[in-house]
Design a protein around this nucleic acid. Sequence first.
RNA 1: GCACCCGUAGCUCAGUUGGAUAGAGCGUCUGACUACGAAUCAGAAGGUCGCACGUUCGAGUCGUGCCGGGUGCACCA
Length: 703
Amino acid sequence: MTIARLSGRPPRRVKGTTTLNLIELQQSLRERVRSAAAARFGVELEQVPSEVPPRIELGDLAFPVAFEMAKRIKQATGEKRNPRAIAEELRAELESAEGVARVEVAGAGYLNLFYDRARLLAGLSQTAPADAPAGDDARPKRMVEHTSVNPNKAAHIGHLRNSVIGDTFVRILRATGERVEVHNYIDNTGVQVADVVVGFIHLEGMSLAGVRALDASLKEDYPFDYYCWDLYARVGLFYRGGDPDAKEDPERLKLRVETLHALEEGGNPTAELADYVATRVVHCQLDTMARLGIRYDLLPRESEVLHFLWSHAFERMKESGAIHFQTGGKNSGCWVMPMETHEGSDEFEADKVIVRSNGTITYTGKDIAYQLWKLGQVDLNFYFKPFRADADGRAVWTTTSDPAQAAGHAPHFGRGSTVYNVIDARQAYPQEVVKRGVAAVAPQVGENSSVHLSYGMVTLSPAAAEELGLELSAEEKTRPFVEMSGRRGLGVKADDFIDTLEANALREVRERHPDVPLEGQQRSAHSLAVGALRYFLMKWTRNSVIVFDFKEALSTKGEAGPYCQYAAVRANSIFRKLPDGEMETAQRLVAGVAAGESGEAAERVRRVFDGEVGGEIWALVTLAARLPEVLAQAASFAEPSHLAKYTFQLAQAFNFFYNRDENRILEESDAPRRAVLVYVTDFVRRQLTDALATLGIEVPERM
RNA sequence: GCACCCGUAGCUCAGUUGGAUAGAGCGUCUGACUACGAAUCAGAAGGUCGCACGUUCGAGUCGUGCCGGGUGCACCA
């Protein structure tokens, strides 16, 4: 990964040249505007906003600063100044800057800057070295929790949205130089696990040995997590006495409560069976995520939060006064956290119960405890042991209550500075409670250290639901979408869907490349399937609800991952055919022009960027150069879809460039022009490849 | 009742912390392949940015009020 970092120390300069870096250039121009505003007009600008003009003809960078200044001058002196006149005065100041060819005042008072294109080309495409490798423990650590699927069934497409958002966000943070720790929380003692355990024990009459035997007998096309998926749905039906529309039978629900209690208690046969089931399902889910290149550092388990962490966190909550014991009223006998900001009423209680009157802990309570640990606010550490190794050999760790199992060489987990929880938008309120709880217990870390990375759910179009064999009620048919439901067994299983994508992609690849060995075809098909799926889940802003439709999700045309991959593949294929040494020649030429060399060659390089076609090429270069800025923005807004949109735009711009007859590289006979085209294409494919990699998408060799 | 999210082209969605002529994809129509790879490209049609006030030099973006849709407000997770 070679991505310039935006914050911290400035990017290095290449020795012996005066190559300009785009970010440095913008900084220095901003400084010029600021000092000129102060010197000529006595206006102190705290920040100098800049923007990219809507069209390349309007320039490379614009400062809409004259409007604000006119207002300030009027406020200070009462004198009315025309924004255009102000802009005119600032213009000369900017025009003399190195790397700026000219400045125009446009519209009502925009300052539009045109860069010296040929001169800047080398600097734009110069990417700073990647940041210090992880292991630098001094840097603050970002904690990202995602996936966290209940370990009682196979993951579906809705879970994938969570994982892909989380994983992409992790990649974005790392690309901007952040230190990141990734958690996948395992709720191994919750209701959902209890329900499948009820299924195994009471519907199937199995003991742990029986479950093991069953597991061993299952075939590849119907693995353990699929079995649990169906069993879980059967248990849901069982609670309702066999009628999906009936109410749950309180007598049958007693089995759930008993089981849940046994799981929380631990150290009994039911808990052992549950542990086997949950662990096996986690392995399956990890396999699914690994297909998409998603991995984790740590799998913290609820059983350890409960048995190990809770008592410490509970003490801190009590000491700090964040919670108190209720002796009367509706919540009598409970430990509650007051939520003053929330209006209470007869119907809705304002206070949030943390510990129930029967002594058990609510989900919110556990979450506050866990969150406090992640932020290093509980004076206790878990024991850790390796869970398994990833395909690349790196260990994924998990927690354990058993000191005998603890590894002596575990990494230093926890003690993060900021925690990002990827959780769906419906849990906004409980997340708010957790955030408040953490801040109440540990005011020094405050509310800002907890970020709820919320996202809308993935629902099914009625057509998709019917394709899955669901009979829709009349009411459901009128709705724009149908919610997925594990309880009803309704959902698009992640592995099934990836299989379909791979099969489709393989068919296309085989058609185009019948000579390539099957293994190579499958590799490409896999990359394309991952590209299609990850892009599909990433192209929406987090807020929007995705209505899943098979046709749309399977499409590889238009705004889709394969479109972006295709642009990179085409660029790469040019370089496969390019004579040896031509890339190096191009680099020398561009570097020479950047260093201020004059002469006929430099002049011809300059001319490449003239005119309409030249303007288009330049627009492509500046768009490609914007990747670091986009990454920084995606990171600070916590909105990975910005990167997806940018990647698509870059691919689109490249295709536009590529399709122009004037830009056919291998047929270009003018040597300097050809060199510039080679140089630009190489830069764009590198940026495109980096952008895709940050989205978790590889560029296949062929497609 | 209270809180949060959403309303932009026929459909699905972007819109860079208030900026220039509101953009994509899909769909529709018209064109371009003995290919630096057509999973592509060029072009056309398509919008009172839910409505009304307000703030501002400037509003899809900010404020207020309506209208319409979604979600949440458990001793469930």
